[in-house]
Computed example of a mutant assay.
Amino acid sequence: MNTTSTHDTKRSEDVRARINVLSELDNTWLSRLHRWSRWNRPYQKVLKGRSVPDPSEESLLYQTMLGAWPLEPGEEAAFVERLVGFMLKALREAKTHTSWISPDLEYESAVESFIRNSVIPHGKSRFMEDFMELQKAVAFYGYHNALSQTLLKMTSPGVPDFYHGTELWDFSLVDPDNRRPVDFEKRVRLLEELKDREPAGLDELLKDLVGNRQDGRIKLFMIRKTLNFRNSHRELFARGEYIPLEGAGRRREHVIAFARRWRKQWAVVAVPRLVARLLQKQKPLLPKERWPALQIILPSECPEKWRNIFTNGTVLPKRLASSQWVLPINTMLDKFPVVLLDGAEQ
């Protein structure tokens, strides 16, 4: 079973997809971490000669804020309460300064006070303004990570598992936060709208989804298209071979690709990685000029014609002088953030 979020996940799949971006922004993250800690020092309390929260707890707080900050401004006030609950549970489970068996209520109260005094939505403090600047960048790159992660889950060997609510963006924290009611009526309505709009104009729909990625419909669209493809190619995904594919050309380290094969059925999956390093500016798609001549090397016995499941476009591989077949990836990622190809039979 391929699982990315469960009832016991400390931070949901889309939260982690954002936080992972920090590994690409290490210098930026470290400088901000030190700066924020210095600015928020007046809100710390000293207990038994120790500043509260300690450096590890403060770092955990800022990382979680970057990963879970809500998309809608109207949810920000409630987020502070969710953040307090997350941190208090994390403190007890870490068992460093407090625990479930022997809780230190004074220490926990000091951490809660630190959060409430420093994390003020719409606040004009140096910290909040600086935080929101980085959070917007992390959220943007995290959206690419989240789509890539979800497509890999659905197409890798195994059975994809979806925790309720993750059909759209889900920025839940540890339980009971990740057990809040899910608006299934909204998801059904959005799904029906996608189904109705696609036949009328796929290109316009894709532009709408990419341009309004913050509403989560792009994730729902990708899940629907991929699961429908799995359903119509059951043997391919249940019994098919997994074939890792290598990239060719510049930026090849920025793509993960593999093929699935069962008899005459083929599929190719390609997703970007380390997007923050790749893009100089925050753009909703990966422009082909940033992927010069990026190609994926295919097995020699592959089909001669492919269909892009998300864009419905036809993709034709090229044969190199070395007799290798290659697929141009740069032009496909220019239209949708991830790639799933159906290999038509010969």
Score class of each variant (00 low, 15 high):
V21F: 00
D161T: 13
F258Q: 07
Y141R: 11
L91M: 14
N145Y: 05
Y163I: 02
V174A: 15
K95G: 05
L279I: 04
H164W: 09
K283L: 15
L105Y: 14
R189K: 14
V275N: 05
S31W: 05
V80H: 10
L88M: 11
Q149G: 11
Y62R: 06
S323I: 04
L327A: 09
D161K: 07
W306R: 06
L88E: 09
L316N: 11
L333K: 01
K195Q: 08
R290L: 14
K10Q: 14
L105I: 14
G49H: 00
L316E: 13
V275P: 00
W69R: 12
D196L: 11
D104W: 05
V15M: 08
D203R: 12
L279A: 11
W306C: 10
K89L: 06
W39S: 06
E246S: 14
W262S: 09
T166Y: 02
I223D: 00
E24N: 12
T28L: 11
C302H: 04
P176T: 09
T9Q: 05
Y242R: 08
P272T: 00
V315W: 01
P292Q: 11
L340S: 07
D177S: 13
Y107D: 03
T6M: 05
P244M: 06
R18F: 06
K136I: 00
W306D: 08
M65S: 13
L25D: 06
P303W: 04
A90P: 08
N27S: 13
L25W: 03
S300P: 04
L286F: 03
F79K: 10
P55Q: 12
N330I: 00
D177V: 12
E72Y: 05
G240W: 09
G211Q: 08
V119W: 07
L274V: 10
A248Q: 09
L61Q: 08
G343R: 02
S156R: 14
S99T: 06
R250G: 01
H254Q: 07
E345D: 15
I115E: 02
P303D: 04
P292T: 10
P328G: 10
R180V: 02
G201V: 05
E81C: 03
P328I: 08
G216A: 04
T64F: 03
N178T: 13
L298T: 12
E304T: 09
R32S: 14
N212M: 04
S322R: 12
K10L: 15
R92D: 11
L245Q: 03
G165W: 06
F221V: 02
T64P: 02
T226M: 00
D175K: 12
E246P: 03
T28I: 09
T3A: 12
F140H: 15
I297F: 06
G123Q: 13
K207H: 11
P160G: 03
G249V: 05
V271G: 00
V271E: 00
S51A: 10
G211S: 13
R319D: 01
T150E: 11
